[in-house]
Write a protein that binds this DNA or RNA. Structure first.
Length: 210
DNA sequence: AGATGGATCGTCT
DNA sequence: GACGATCCATCTG
């Protein structure tokens, strides 16, 4: 494993990392070919104190083991018939992580369109939609480190968002006042691939980039 | 454009 | 046996 990836995913608080990932390129080397795009939406999950986190209260099971691994490790989980892609952050044993919720597709569009029923801005504008587009049908990449995986994030370059907006996370139970409303979802403002974005808020000129 | 409900299955109680 | 860090078709306005 490559130390630079690991140290990057420990170099900042997890919410700061979630912001820093916006504009970076995520790729997946699928059997069908290379697919990927620019990260436009992330959510940070802040560990044992975070009511919304799978690792809340240090909950640890076979399925969420990925969160406990060193920063840069992959945590894939299944919910309903769908798969979700997380990256563990911080040191091993500290179960914080980032959910990648949406990308602006830039690589392997034809492959992703084959894998998805919906097209256009619906191609990758949600966490499970992205995984469908990638053609993920199992958890074989779960628990791997990014550097030893078919998934990669290019940390050498970044497209700079015009503006990053922080909002409450999507789909978390309104159990705890603070954690349910804490602004730990980060989006590239105006990008059409952001999930649940209103049509009127889309920036068709620049897609929210500088 | 926004709200509602069914689908569907791995995972935990 | 019940529940989601969801998706999508199908309403309504």
């Amino acid at each position: 494993m490559n130390q630079t990836t690991t140290s990057y995913f420990q170099s900042l608080p997890t919410d700061e990392l979630a912001k820093d990932l916006l504009g970076r390129t995520l790729t997946y080397q699928s059997p069908q070919g290379l697919v990927g795009g620019l990260i436009v939406e992330t959510e940070s999950y802040m560990g044992p104190t975070d009511f919304a986190a799978h690792s809340y209260n240090n909950r640890r099971t076979n399925s969420n083991e990925g969160l406990y691994k060193v920063g840069g490790s992959i945590y894939i989980y299944a919910q309903r018939q769908y798969f979700f892609f997380d990256i563990a952050t911080q040191e091993a044993g500290n179960p914080e992580g980032i959910l990648i919720r949406a990308i602006e597709p830039t690589i392997g569009l034809d492959i992703m369109n084959q894998n998805r029923k919906m097209h256009g801005f619906e191609l990758t504008n949600g966490p499970a939609k992205m995984m469908q587009a990638f053609g993920i049908k199992d958890k074989s990449e779960n628990l791997k480190h990014l550097d030893d995986s078919q998934f990669k994030i290019d940390l050498t370059k970044r497209k700079i968002p015009q503006e990053i907006i922080a909002t409450p996370r999507i789909g978390v139970k309104q159990q705890d006042e603070f954690w349910a409303n804490a602004p730990f979802r980060f989006i590239v403002d105006g990008n059409p691939y952001v999930s649940r974005i209103k049509k009127a808020e889309i920036d068709l000129q620049n897609f929210g980039w500088n």
